[in-house]
């Protein structure tokens, strides 16, 4: 239940971040490169999903959908990329990373 609540809150947060990303941050490009805030935070959330009690894969998919809505790529382009990335990170973490309390 807590995971569901946290995930929902993070999704709302991501929605706002996405709006900021697509309308505010795009103006701050330097030589046509700009900071992809969503990806950065997505990585962070997936890395720390156990600590912050969220479902990283769900957040990755929904964030991907947000991006797909406002991009010229085919409908599930970002969704698939984010999902696979999150999945790979989780697999990597599962196999190789351990944190000590």
């Amino acid at each position: 239940m807590k995971s569901f609540l946290n995930t929902s809150l993070f999704l709302i947060l991501f929605l706002f971040l996405f709006l900021i990303q697509t309308s505010f941050i795009v103006h701050f490009n330097i030589s046509n490169y700009f900071f992809f805030l969503i990806v950065f935070l997505l990585f962070l959330v997936v890395f720390l999903e156990d600590l912050i009690k969220v479902n990283g894969l769900v957040i990755a998919v929904i964030s991907g959908l947000f991006c797909d809505f406002f991009s010229l790529n085919s409908m599930i382009f970002y969704t698939v990329i984010f999902f696979i990335t999150a999945l790979l990170i989780k697999v990597f973490l599962k196999k190789h990373v351990y944190l000590q309390r």
Partner: peptide, 9 residues
Amino acid sequence: MKPLKIGRP
């Protein structure tokens, strides 16, 4: 101390 495993098994 018990190590915390990241990612759900």
